[in-house]
């Protein structure tokens, strides 16, 4: 099977090195190549995704959530919501997972150099943005301020909680999080993610915003950013549709003229603003 190396439809076996629990239903899996071959070096652009195949069960598009500078490993954060995701997060260390990819467009990290970076994430939407955060913190002098706005359903649904606290201690880095429902013991903010903008001093002309979360959240946040003076071309969103092949040939992830898997998942708001309002497109 010499073809397996080059055919993007063929999963390559990677092995689970570590699996850790983020929330009651969300897990982070760190994979390493099992063959050590050239295909197993990792390497991806922040924002890209892989297709993860669970032997005999099915395949899922999962964003890469690890550090892009780390070679020879790939990290994914998966929320268990169905049989395939449940099977995926049930893997133990040493078991293999099929990996195809990485696929898709990434966040505009190069284009954001010299500017402030505003990351707005909802729920598990923080996972595809974490590589951006790692990248900015690793190359701190190339970027202006880093602002991370994070909304989750409740405190127990927040992922990367320790890291959020650690990121907030970095120079020129502001982390604001909020939940929709807080118990009385919760000392943080309660309210929708758009309510966080009033705590920011945005420099609209020199800011790149990157959004990932439920579509309606991104739509509301993108509008809020526009109202605060950000140009649509400086706002990027990561879209989700049913991705099966990841190479633009199965047709499932079409969204208007776009195939989310190859033309996205990251799009400029300037290109898709009108489409976001179209129901059942």
């Amino acid at each position: 099977m010499a073809n397996a190396e080059i055919d993007p439809m063929m999963p390559r076996p990677w092995v689970v090195r570590r699996i850790s629990k983020e929330t009651p239903d969300t897990f982070t899996l760190a994979l390493e190549p099992s063959d050590g071959g050239p295909s197993g070096r990792g390497g991806f652009q922040p924002g890209q995704f892989s297709m993860l195949w669970v032997f005999g069960v099915g395949e899922l598009p999962i964003s890469i959530s690890g550090d892009p500078a780390e070679e020879g490993s790939l990290t994914y954060t998966v929320r268990s919501v169905g049989p395939a995701t449940q099977a995926l997060v049930s893997h133990g260390a040493g078991q293999s997972v099929g990996v195809r990819g990485p696929f898709g467009t990434g966040w505009p990290v190069a284009g954001a150099e010299g500017k402030d970076v505003v990351v707005v994430a909802g729920g598990i939407g923080l996972a595809p943005l974490r590589p951006v955060i790692y990248h900015v913190l690793r190359h701190r002098d190339r970027f202006g301020r880093l602002v991370i706005l994070y909304g989750a359903r409740s405190p127990r649904d927040m992922i990367y909680r320790k890291e959020l606290a650690a990121w907030a201690r970095h120079k020129d880095t502001q982390v604001l999080s909020t939940v929709d429902y807080g118990g009385v013991a919760w000392r943080g903010r309660v309210g929708v993610v758009t309510s966080l903008f009033k705590y920011l001093r945005l420099q609209p002309a020199r800011t790149t915003a990157m959004l990932c979360g439920p579509e309606i959240m991104m739509r509301l946040v993108a509008r809020e950013l526009a109202a605060r003076g950000l140009a649509a071309g400086d706002v990027y969103l990561s879209m989700e549709r049913n991705m099966k092949c990841a190479v633009g040939s199965c047709g499932h992830c079409q969204w208007g003229p776009h195939f989310i898997c190859k033309d996205g998942p990251v799009f400029s708001y300037a290109h898709i603003a009108a489409m976001l309002d179209r129901y059942e497109l």
Partner: peptide, 18 residues
């Protein structure tokens, strides 16, 4: 920071907004 709380009957208090 101030929390706006609701006390639903027979349930624990919840914070609806801060």
């Amino acid at each position: 920071r101030v929390a706006i709380e609701m006390m639903p009957p027979h349930r624990k208090a919840i914070v609806v907004e801060t």
